[in-house]
Simulated scan of single mutants.
Amino acid sequence: MTTPTTAPLAPGVHTAHIGGLAVRYHVHGQGPVCLAHPGGPGFTWDYLRAPAVEQHLTMVYVEPIGTGGSGRLPGHPHGYTRARYSAALDGLLDHLGCGPVHLLGHSHGGFVAQHYALRHPDRLAGLILYESAPAIGHDHFTEADRNLRARFSGHHDPHSADILDAWTRVPTISDDDAFTTTARRLLPAYLADHPARAAEFDALRKAITGTYISGLDTDLRPEVIDDRDRLGDLTLPVLIVVGAHDFICGPHWANALHTLLPHADLVTLRHSGHFGHLEEPDAFAGAVTAFAHTAAP
């Protein structure tokens, strides 16, 4: 690991070198430290930025390995397992040199955060699972498909046909351009009320970019994500945040997490889909900052 030329938690853009790979991260705000791991896998970090939270917490937004300005594995786009992401997080905490921190994981980042917390609880003051689930597999994707079709098959949204077509193309994504194009087409599905707020989120939709990550390990096998048997052992304080209208990691999965985790609080954002930090920024910030200050190390 290289010696930083500036303080590792100074506001701005930083790069740590961990396990032979660059890990870029962005520091904004003030207060207790909270690492934020975005979803996808493959999305760039900037969609997750939450200025309202930054008024109360020092947010460290991670660019996961394989995305943005962080390094790529030799077998890219394969090999990006939760174990590899967790190793990068562990090295980043060494680089930051601070005590127990809060870890926020959004969507797939929530799966990474769960994995890390189960293995390194001593390094965390609290865990924030934002649009996560205890496992993904056939049941998870079947429900997501059912929710999506129930919402958009009636064509009440002018983007309905395009959304459903893009959804069917997700399994065929195999490069960065296809990932980005499909993500932009699907964005309306992730918002609670896109028809009413289309103009508000148009810039976000056009700005979305990402990197294709296969979801396969180095042996080209799908990674199994199932923490149901272990979550009950987690003694950390946990905050679960979910949007009431999220079709893919919604209330069903948030309630499942809440049942499994012995020290968890559940906050449902009533007017949000998958992006509550953008759809209800004040409510999201209030929940996260209250939790972080209550669960201070």
Rank of each mutant, 00 (worst) to 15 (best):
L124H: 00
A189I: 05
D246G: 14
H252V: 13
P237G: 10
L57V: 12
D229P: 06
C98K: 05
A295Y: 01
G243P: 10
L266F: 02
G39H: 05
T58E: 02
N255C: 11
S153V: 02
L103K: 06
I213W: 00
P77R: 08
P188C: 03
T5E: 12
D94L: 00
C98W: 11
D162T: 15
G126I: 09
R221M: 13
E131M: 06
S86W: 05
D176Q: 02
F152T: 07
I173Y: 00
G126T: 10
S160K: 06
H277V: 08
D94G: 09
F291W: 08
A207W: 02
G79S: 08
L260N: 07
D217P: 02
H17L: 04
R270M: 15
H155W: 01
F179H: 14
L21F: 07
R119D: 08
H156P: 04
I173P: 01
G210C: 06
G12D: 06
A292C: 15
A192Q: 05
L204E: 09
A113N: 12
M59R: 00
H138V: 13
Q114A: 00
A244S: 11
A125R: 12
L266P: 02
N255A: 15
D217C: 03
S174L: 04
E279P: 03
H78M: 00
R84D: 04
G69A: 13
D246E: 10
I173K: 00
L164T: 07
R169G: 08
L269P: 13
I248M: 13
A287R: 09
F247C: 10
A7K: 13
P134F: 09
H76G: 04
S107T: 11
D282P: 00
R184N: 09
E63L: 06
T44W: 03
G71V: 04
A52L: 12
P251H: 02
H138G: 03
G19Q: 04
G12A: 07
D282M: 07
V101W: 09
I240K: 06
H78S: 02
G42C: 03
H102C: 02
H274M: 07
R185W: 07
Y47S: 01
R151H: 09
G91K: 01
T172N: 13
G154H: 14
I248H: 11
T172A: 14
L231V: 06
S272L: 01
A7W: 12
T142M: 05
D145H: 13
L257Y: 04
L9P: 08
P237F: 12
D219H: 14
G243T: 10
G232M: 07
A87F: 10
D219E: 15
H155D: 07
L57S: 00
